[in-house]
Design a protein around this nucleic acid. Sequence first.
DNA 1: GCAATTTGGTAAAACGATACACTTAAAATC
DNA 2: GATTTTAAGTGTATCGTTTTACCAAATTGC
Lengths: 383, 383
Amino acid sequence: MRFSGTLGDLNVMPPKSGSPTDAAERVTIQDVAKAASVSVSSVSNYMNNRFHRLGTETRTRIATAIAELDFRPNQAARQLKTGKARVIALVVPSIVNPFNGQMVFSIEQAAVKAGYRVHLCNTMRDPKLEKEFLDNLAAIGVADLITIAPLNTRRGYYSAWSDLSIVAVDANRLDLKLARLDTVNLDHEAAIGMAVEHLFALGHRRIAYVTDPLITHSRVMRLSGFKKAMKDRELDDSQAVVLERHQSALDIADAQMVEVGRDAASDVAALSPRPTAIIAFNDMIALGLLATFRSAGIAVPKDMSIIGVDDAWISQLSFPALTTIRQPIEAMAAAAVESVLKPSAAPTSAGSDTIFLPELVIRDTCAKPQEEVATHIRKRRLE
Amino acid sequence: MRFSGTLGDLNVMPPKSGSPTDAAERVTIQDVAKAASVSVSSVSNYMNNRFHRLGTETRTRIATAIAELDFRPNQAARQLKTGKARVIALVVPSIVNPFNGQMVFSIEQAAVKAGYRVHLCNTMRDPKLEKEFLDNLAAIGVADLITIAPLNTRRGYYSAWSDLSIVAVDANRLDLKLARLDTVNLDHEAAIGMAVEHLFALGHRRIAYVTDPLITHSRVMRLSGFKKAMKDRELDDSQAVVLERHQSALDIADAQMVEVGRDAASDVAALSPRPTAIIAFNDMIALGLLATFRSAGIAVPKDMSIIGVDDAWISQLSFPALTTIRQPIEAMAAAAVESVLKPSAAPTSAGSDTIFLPELVIRDTCAKPQEEVATHIRKRRLE
DNA sequence: GCAATTTGGTAAAACGATACACTTAAAATC
DNA sequence: GATTTTAAGTGTATCGTTTTACCAAATTGC
């Protein structure tokens, strides 16, 4: 199934066993000090922006020496001394989930801007993998952790790493029960509220909600947001379908999310009276519903309106393109990075919660409910 | 647009200003040595599997001491001494591209298995970002680099980092012109060959090929594979559509790939005589084509068959589900990691090329060409 | 039984930065 | 003018490993 071959004759450079970039002599702070005729300490001060300890003359001398030698401080040495690495640990169930992928991407961009690098860990929600990763953080001097969508059953889980500065995206401090924790979240209830309002304005009255098991903060809050928004409009909120955890829940692709949608489709179609619209916990489930309805001959949006949450890039891709509620991913990523890097405030404080407002993105999967259904409902409401 | 609030009263743990996990005293190799009543050297030898230097007795003593103290060697110190970090640098245009996402995911998994961690860099194909990342690698002691789908115009680009062990996935050594380089590739020509054969066997004779600009090895090889496979069957290979680079080529989402497909759809529909089937460079483009055809009323697969390449998880999601050529992502990721970590062979060798065979995944976007078209073509061939 | 080797083990010098404790000269204060 | 303060800069111990060189005892060869 696989060939491996060594094509020795493709060597495009002459052998030159000599020394082109040979030993690649690393230039150290000592070399710089010598070149600038100053002490190592001064160079160190320069490197750490302690300019008040330096005269303008030495300062420029050091600057030119650094530039000439292309000096880059050895991070291992620096780290050994200071105990801190400029690295953010990033724990995520799986970047293959497109929303997580975008979030990780944006966090990496934000981290680089702040002069940090990112250590990635796809946990697949496997506690062993995650624990191992976290346990090794101290050994490599990492002090900052961002975790995305941790299980909400993890009470006190992160307490074991209390020396880390932790920020959780899509999580609730009460769930995690951690002494110090910052969180970054979408206003999930508002998000679903917007979805309900959009459908309501279109004329829908029988609205279902589909979610996979309530294992994260967002799942809990979106469901409760659904119930609130329905009650506010005096609508029946009983058509909330919470699915069993799918077999392949730990599969690589989060394609299982789509499976969830597939499974849900029949459940939803069986609801009586049949809803005219569905709100999905996220775009993946919405897409799964969409695909299944279409292959079952249920037209979207004519027979059924569908709306998702996230506005993962993938949702533009379906036909019809998915109407959804957008999370401001970049802003949330930036907030998470900023939050994890900011010097910890008063140690008495429990941390901050940053909440972002969602945005309705209207595409093509929502329409007015069909005549008959609409009149049917109108009749029922009049009775 | 955003609220931030400090909920100081949510502190769920008693203040306890004392010392719970307080100073978190890091346990060092010295502590272990003391506890086991042996020298530091012996512990070091133990940690580095140099068991031939140890008696069974000391060996167990050290083992228990390590377990008891939960000793984890300080990687910074180790690195400072050895100059090497157990980290693989991973350069990728963007993990948001689902295929890249899966590849990065699998590489991370393989790296962890080998005791390595992954430093991620989404370059967005921005040379500045990439250069900066690579330049800093030495400073953090990283010696191993995996780069995914680098531009094939980058002759000699990586020579500046000749002290790295470099593996390129989806790249050609001749393109990169690097002294020492291992590559991991799909057999791209075979992949397209399989696609052509599948369509040919279904009865298609007018087959188009759609690709975005030929900026990577795979893009070049798949196109050439298309031409070869068509010529082998004495078919017209002129219907290869190479699109201009799309405006948003550097967009976050690689959603532009879908745009490419969208743009291509009209070009393809305008081809005369109109092809009965299209092979897309990858699944993203195929999905773009699919979505566009369907909204234009061209039925897939009745009026037009479509086949992609990659079998990114996303391709199961479309309706109809996409027929495609699968890349064995996990195996390729494992090969890349193995390759980058293996002790470099004879320095005279130019490296190895590992090539993987693709696999046809039949779903629902390919069918026999329509009667009329089929007869029409049959007639033409008989003339 | 004595030299040569093997086995099991140790002491101490690095690795490259940081940070603490100092020094010295100039400036400011009284 | 004597004393204190500030500015600018340096020497060196230190972080926690690895590694080299070295040593003693046990084993082997002849």
